[in-house]
Structures are given as C-alpha cells and as structure tokens.
Amino acid sequence: MANNIFVIAEHLKGKVDDVTYEMLGKAKELAAGGQVVAVLLGSGAKGLAADFAADKVLYVDSPELAEYNPEAYGKTIASLVSAHAPKAVLVAYTSQGVDIAAGICVDCDMPLVAYATGISGNHVTSQLYGGKMNVESAVDGDRFVAAVIPGSFPAAAGKGGGAAVEDAPAPDLSGLKVKFKKLIEPAGGDVDITQSPILVSVGRGIQSEDNLPVVQALADKLGGALSSSRPIVDAKWLPKTRQVGKSGLKVKPKLYIAVGISGAPEHIEGMKDAECIIAINTDPKAPIFSYAHYGVTEDLFDVVPALVDKL
C-alpha cells in the first residue's frame, strides 16, 4: 500500500460534501502508481460512494458512525490508517476534518500540514496568516496528512464512480466519551441571504454596531440584503443567518459588495463564486482584493454614503 492515497470522505444529512470530490481528484494526481482509496464511514451509507472517482472505497458501517462523532470517527480512521499505512491522507479542513486530521498525526505518527491549498509530491502549500502568506512545506520522508481547504481543487476530477466498495471492520467503539445528541437547523424567519442576488456584506471595518445603518442604507438602495463576516455575528450585531463563510452560508449573488472585510480564507470560502465582487477596504494589501473584481481603498464612511447618493 506504499503509494496509496487515502481520502477521508465527508458527508452530512445523506449528502457528500464537494470537498470529498475535490480531494479525490487531487489524490488521483498524487497516487503515481498507487491507488486512490476513499474512506467512508456511516451507517447504511454505502450508497454515498456511488460517484467517487477512486480505485477503491473502504467502507466502515456501525451504528456509532451513523452521525459524525469526533471520537468514533477519529478512532475508526486512525485504525484504518494504521492497518493500511497509506502514503498520504487527505482530510478536509472543515468542522469535521479539523477533529480528524490532528488525531491521525498523533495516533499514526504522520506529519500534518494544515490549511493546505496545494500538494505536489511531498510538498504541501498552506495558506497562513489569514490568507496573507503562503507557505510551502517539505515533508520529512514521504508520508503525510494534509488538511485541505475546501475549494482548493476542482471537484469534477473526483467524480466518476464504479469503485469497488470493500467493507472494513470498525474498531471497538464501546464506551465512547463523546455522544452525538442532535443536529440543530439554522433558525428560520430571517432573510435568506443565499437567495438574494445582491449582497452588501459588512466586516470589522464598520467598527461599531452604531455604524451599521451606513451599510444597511446601501443594501436598501440596491434592493439587496445585508450580510457579514464572522466577527460581526460573534459581536451579535447581526444574526447568524447573515454570516457568509466557512461556518456560515455559501453565497453566489450577482453582486457582492464587501465593505470593511479583509478577506480571511474562511470568508473567501463562502463568497468567491459571486459573479461580481466589489471590495471596499482601506488596507491595500487585504486578501479580499485578490478575489474582488473591483477594489476601493478609500474610507468606507466616505465612499458608501456617496455611493448611496449616486444610485
């Protein structure tokens, strides 16, 4: 199994996350004579592997794996990696993957490179410092775990099907200390920002809750909705339903105006597919300008009211 690449599949509510296909496509490139092995855990979830472009799927079925559980999934994956000794393991840098990747690193003594956006041979590129720097790591030896940022590779290359699905045994999962209780759906009743063709999105640059009317006025004028980056929601200035990004919502509006948002990778993940992105931020080095189509570095408190007047 020396050249095999493991891809840890991720799914929630019966749907495979796109990042799984993104990693499968990349794994095909890395396998070089070895096999691409998708690792799928669940209960009655074998069918989720139908579209995996892999040489093989290792499927572990257990009632303890019906819902994601950091402890049960961590133990099962570590036992598979130990038993099969793949060259590399690709895990998504997602809420689930962040639990899993570091566990494989310690339990199987494999170097971990996080925030990965590029992999070539045993070199892994990470996006560090909020997207302001890229760092290329050379792994000692050949074996490694990479925690891959979603959206880094095309998903199409990882879709196919026809992989042989092999049942693999679950380790002893009795006496788990972490128990899954329930999934809590996002609160309804608010504007659905994923449905709005125009979003005015506000970040830390707005400085204070009292300044929100400045950006709300622009959203109103455009007939769009007001959304935000994470710090605004953490500060409770806007409800969770307005958050764009990794742990918020992914949006693809026709027009996305980012106001006072620097563009941390977690935010970019949620909005980079917008048709037209305008960014207003006083820091000319802000990562958001790498993704925006139009950029403005004038003070938002001057530009936004002036823009409302012109529209």
Binding site: V113, N134, S137, G295, E298
Partner: peptide, 24 residues
C-alpha cells in the same frame, strides 16, 4: 512537525481587483 518550510511567498494578486481611486 515532521516537515520544514521550504519557502514563504505572498499570494499572487495578479488578475485581482481593478482598483478604483479618486475622491469619494
């Protein structure tokens, strides 16, 4: 860490935003 940094580089900004400047 089991790995070492071989290089650090700033993300390419080419193809990024068309910057608009001037008075507000």
């Amino acid at each position: 860490s089991g790995s070492s940094i071989s290089r650090m580089f700033k993300p390419e900004t080419g193809g990024g935003a068309e910057m608009i400047s001037g008075s507000a």
